[in-house]
Design a protein around this nucleic acid. Structure first.
Lengths: 116, 116
DNA sequence: TTAGAATGGAACGGAGCCGAAATGATCGCG
DNA sequence: CGCGATCATTTCGGCTCCGTTCCATTCTAA
């Protein structure tokens, strides 16, 4: 659990992660794409385009395009809702789960290395 | 200090911050720009273009353009080094300091709100 | 003093994302 | 059944960022 995280530590953690993302990230995800990805993998389904657009405070095409890009990477999948065929449900993939898991490990590793 | 940060918590923290950035961020900074900004404000000077490019693992024009953009926002400043006039030193600004400080507060606030 | 190295920046074409508006498919109420 | 509402996607013009390459300035060492 997080206890007494100080401003300097918080910023250092954020900086280290940002640099790691810039240096190593193969997919070069946007902040918006990252927000979409983590929402899909951390919040309970179902995930619709409209719902995610509302949650992130962006327009629907932003979500559609983010899913296009990340779908191309194999990080997410989507198909029509059988109940209401207007809806599109975003699904998780094995590849995406591995990617998210690696991201979590990175945050933890960087958090451990923080100076006192 | 960070103690026993678990994978789920780490990812939730990162997700919350990403969403906040997407929703509220006035400047809409790229991950690279963010990495540059935090490097300038968290690591000891001097900061040269070449040095930061090496640190972030990107090309020089990336740093130059990031400084152009953020300089336009007033988040950073730069001028020639008097000792070696080939170098350009990146300087901090009051506006940039406030922005970074707010970012730190955001991380802390989100960290506090993490579920057990 | 001068040749070569180093530094930051500019120019270029290409690629991706943006918001707004239009499109196509589907639902549900009357 | 039909028509308006809802949902996701596509289209459009515009903007920003990308990497590569080239250039001007400045330093350094022979």
């Amino acid at each position: 659990m997080l206890i007494e995280l100080k401003p300097m530590q918080a910023l250092t953690l954020w900086k280290e992660i940002a640099i790691s993302e810039v240096r190593d990230d193969a997919h070069d995800l946007t902040m918006r794409q990252l927000a979409v990805l983590l929402t899909v993998y951390l919040e309970p389904p179902p995930h619709t385009i409209r719902g995610m657009a509302a949650k992130l405070g962006v327009t629907k095409p932003v979500i559609t395009r983010a899913l296009d890009t990340m779908g191309g990477y194999g990080l997410v999948d989507r198909h029509r809702d059988d109940k209401d065929k207007r809806n599109v449900l975003v699904k998780r993939t094995v590849k995406g789960a591995l990617y998210v898991e690696k991201l979590g490990d990175l945050v933890i590793a960087k958090a451990r290395g923080l100076p006192l």
